[in-house]
Design a protein around this nucleic acid. Sequence first.
DNA 1: TATAATTATGCAACATTGTTGCGTTTACAA
DNA 2: TTGTAAACGCAACAATGTTGCATAATTATA
Lengths: 130, 130
Amino acid sequence: MAIIRNTIAKKAVFEIIQLNKTAMSQTEIFAKANNICDRVTVYRILERLVKEMKIHKIVNVNGVINYAPCNSCSHEQHVHHDHLHFSCTTCKKLTCISDNRIELNIPSNYQVAEVFLTVSGICPDCLIIT
Amino acid sequence: MAIIRNTIAKKAVFEIIQLNKTAMSQTEIFAKANNICDRVTVYRILERLVKEMKIHKIVNVNGVINYAPCNSCSHEQHVHHDHLHFSCTTCKKLTCISDNRIELNIPSNYQVAEVFLTVSGICPDCLIIT
DNA sequence: TATAATTATGCAACATTGTTGCGTTTACAA
DNA sequence: TTGTAAACGCAACAATGTTGCATAATTATA
Ligand SMILES: [Mn+2]
Ligand SMILES: [Mn+2]
Ligand SMILES: [Zn+2]
Ligand SMILES: [Zn+2]
């Protein structure tokens, strides 16, 4: 079993993700990290944090991968998240929205593993401004 | 108002998309196009076909953008598709699955525009092989 | 048909996002 | 304190997508 090390960079990256209200891409996280480590290291730290189930991965509607903290992830729910994501077309922010039950209507010959549900539109912050 | 031109390359790209059972990325489409045009042209043709509502765009779970033909797209439904997509973890193919009603449970201060629902798992073809 | 205007293309160059290999450093257990 | 696995930096690469600009093809219209 591999030993998990809590390096300075890893702690910093995790804190950046935790303190932010919305999900962030590697680029955004690296920008906030103030050159605490190389950008490749950020990628590798993110991989580890996902594996350790401290954060989860979300593909935004434009194809860019974002990361957000896991709040109550069990081993089974870690990837197959029970919540949806909201992608704001104005501020481009991606937000985790609390649990949402959906009923899938898929032919029985498909074996379902994970459900990815992302809704785009305008977030509350951007609606106020308008 | 812009005039729509049906060029040889555009017809070829559209036919490639129509004849394929699953959605395809620009890379796959270009590979099948047999150097009928430059790869940049394929990107531009895809943009036009999306605008003309002949095809639609789907972001796969890995972040790569795929394209599939539109079957019964109205102006309103063009992007806000009423169907879900199945992403096979084995053969990596992305398939459009016919309509699927879902009930969203989003706070009312979010203004919803489009819904993106992608399910991953194992497709029927890959299940048979196993 | 000839000419002008518009649309589409090729090519080169660039941007962004993500990955890999490898030698070196660091964290942690013993 | 020290050995070793884990993490890191750096350089190089890969995949995907975008932009500018000169040229070619198509369509409009005189
Ligand atoms: Mn989330
Ligand atoms: Mn589809
Ligand atoms: Zn917003
Ligand atoms: Zn499959």
